[in-house]
Structures are given as C-alpha cells and as structure tokens.
C-alpha cells in the first residue's frame, strides 16, 4: 500500500461531516438564492448528495442534506420533499421555471443556483468539510 493510499483509507474511517450554514454555502459557491424561506439564516446543512437520478436520492433517505443537481423540474422538489432534503442547489447556472419555484415556496425548500458544475461545487463543499451521508 502506498503512503497516499494509506492516508486516504485512514481518513475514510475517521471523518464525520461538518455542519455548514446554507448561507455560507451560497457564499462559497457564489450562488444566487432563488427561493429564500424566512428561516434561511438558520438553516444548517449536515451532508450533501449530488445526483441527477431521483431514485438515487430516494434510495439513500437523505434528511437534512443539500441536494446538488442539474435538473430543475417540479418533480425534483417533490423528490426533495419526500426524501427529507433540506435545500437544493442547481448547477451550471440552471434556473427553475415558475412551477418549480412555486412548489419550493409551498414546501419551504430553499433553492440556490451556481454557475459551477456539479464536480467543482462538490469539490469546494468537500474542502469546506461537508460530507456524504454515511449510509452506504
């Protein structure tokens, strides 16, 4: 086993994700806030999940997670609501239509949009201490 690999496998057992404020996430990713519930300053993100396939989001039950996705249709909001997702970040500067925004407002789910791609957004948030759910 090489030194590098050893280091990675060690850290894999020990890490646990940091709680990061949603506001801080929006600053790190220079994201615009499209739907901003009243309590947005108090929202903490415990983990993140990046996916475009909604069944995967549902499979892992991700309460209090941030969902990072390239899809903006209303059924993404439904998925988030059903899976217990706390907030959604759209990548590649994608903007949801009015139906999606309306549903997110109804469900009190904050929507953010960044110019970054999913990979870079994940990289920056990982660097900030955000982790995936441990349920795999």
């Amino acid at each position: 086993m090489t030194e590098l690999r050893k280091k990675t496998s060690d850290s894999r057992q020990s890490f646990s994700g940091k709680n990061v404020k949603l506001k801080e996430i929006s600053q790190l990713l220079e994201a615009s806030i499209i739907v901003s519930p009243e309590n947005i300053d108090d929202i903490n993100i415990e983990s993140a999940c990046s996916a475009d396939l909604m069944s995967d989001v549902l499979y892992y039950h991700s309460p209090n997670s941030l969902l990072i996705t390239g899809l903006t249709q209303p059924h993404v909001i439904r998925t988030a609501e059903i899976a217990g997702i706390k907030a959604i970040l759209f990548v590649l500067n994608k903007k949801p239509d009015s139906r999606t925004i309306e549903l997110a407002q109804q469900q009190n789910i904050p929507l953010l949009s960044t110019q970054l791609c999913m990979y870079t957004a994940a990289g920056i948030l990982y660097e900030a201490g955000v982790r995936s759910l441990r349920d795999y």
């Binding site: 069944s55 499979y59 249709q73």
Partner: peptide, 17 residues
Amino acid sequence: VRELGWGAGMGLPNMKK
C-alpha cells in the same frame, strides 16, 4: 425519461426496500 432523472432501474427496488 433518463434525461428527466428517472428510469435508472431503481424504482421497483426502492419500492421493495
């Protein structure tokens, strides 16, 4: 359908799970 984020072959397994 896959471009909409569905049809990844996890639907029935998810229901069963």
